[in-house]
Design a protein around this nucleic acid. Structure first.
Lengths: 119, 119
DNA sequence: CCGAATCCCTGGTGATACTG
DNA sequence: CAGTATCACCAGGGATTCGG
């Protein structure tokens, strides 16, 4: 366990990050937030750089936590769609705030690079 | 660069997580949010499990991003204090939301463990 | 007390190939 | 199309030691 214990952690934010730990999870949510549902292949295309293996794994973990829902349509060829659950929706405000903060942060860094003179 | 490019990233939240990437960074902020400033050794005690090397590194990175401020008092023995900058304060709402979400999530899991019958 | 310098090690990720 | 199965990798951390 080492440091994975988040039982009586004074900072519960850590457990949030624990649940959302994974290089692409927030990006996956980002895309699922703007579409009712997405097929596996659609997610692949929307997330350049991710591999099948990793996308599968992170989706499974999100499903495990009840954040996304996986629907398999018994067709041929196979079709699997992923969607945000009602519970997952509760993460949206957080993502939005991080989105805004990230934007502002990038702007800030750009400024510092543009006006390197003033310290 | 592989996948580290966050320039024209459609999801700027990723860059936020990029900046705050580090096992203990949010926890460090958590403590700095409830104290005007903390000494290095105080942070060490408040964060069981972290090592000097790692605490130093993550603090330096936070300082680099303008999120925390490092003040060295030229005394003997040395005293170094860390404090949140005005800019760093802008992260507080995000941390608060993650804190709330994490708490709720833990409660949810506890419930599922308590009533394992109902699916 | 605070932190730099070394060495080491693990787990999350990437690459590739194969299947129903 | 939507995965599983293997193997390999390396950056982020961890343990320890030394220094001002």
């Amino acid at each position: 366990m080492s440091s994975g214990h988040v039982g009586n952690e004074p900072c519960s934010a850590v457990s949030t990050l624990q649940v959302l730990s994974g290089k692409w999870k927030w990006l996956i949510l980002y895309h699922l937030f703007q579409h009712p549902s997405l097929r596996f292949s659609e997610l692949m295309r929307k997330i350049p750089g991710i591999t099948q293996r990793v996308l599968t794994k992170q989706l499974r973990e999100l499903e495990e936590e009840g954040i996304v829902e996986r629907t398999v349509y018994p067709e041929v060829p196979p079709r699997v769609e992923y969607a945000i659950t009602a519970y997952g929706q509760s993460l949206r405000p957080i993502l939005d705030m991080m989105h805004a903060w990230g934007l502002e942060h990038l702007r800030r860094k750009t400024e510092r690079a543009t006006h390197p003179s003033e310290r």
